[in-house]
């Protein structure tokens, strides 16, 4: 009985700890043999690169504005929402890079990430990833 109570207590503690959930970078199972390092992921989401390490053109998905998107950019690039918005608007409106495709909903993002090869995106760890491959974990 005692180990079970200890376990329940631990679960309760973990569940109530501040929500800084792990974020997953994923791609469709239909993608080629893509590999992604943290450094490459940062370059892609900062518009400094537009291909995977093997030269395959990469497309990016953004979730709709919200907590998961903000945490993703903060974890990967160290930039807060206003900084990343200013940074990307400069790239886009000077014709340097096309912005990540913004999905209108989480469901649309999941559909794209399941169906479209060589497209990468990010999801909260608790999201199901059926039909997708996890490329990277951002703890």
């Amino acid at each position: 009985m005692r180990p079970l109570r200890a376990l329940l207590l631990l679960v309760a503690l973990l569940a109530s700890s501040p929500n800084r959930a792990e974020i997953l970078i994923v791609t469709s199972n239909r993608s080629g043999p893509i590999e992604l390092t943290r450094d490459q992921a940062e370059k892609l989401y900062l518009g400094r690169s537009s291909t995977f390490s093997d030269g395959t053109p990469a497309s990016l998905v953004d979730l709709p504005n919200g907590q998961v998107r903000d945490e993703f950019y903060l974890k990967l690039t160290g930039k807060n929402p206003a900084q990343i918005q200013a940074y990307w608007s400069r790239l886009v409106f000077t014709g340097r890079a096309l912005p990540p495709k913004e999905a209108r909903s989480l469901a649309e993002a999941r559909q794209w990430l399941t169906d479209t090869p060589n497209l990468i995106g990010y999801l909260d760890r608790n999201e199901p990833t059926t039909g997708m491959r996890i490329l990277l974990r951002l703890p």
Partner: peptide, 14 residues
Amino acid sequence: HASDVPSPFSLSGF
């Protein structure tokens, strides 16, 4: 309608 693939077109402004 909500599409299965991202649209090749984008419109933005400032």
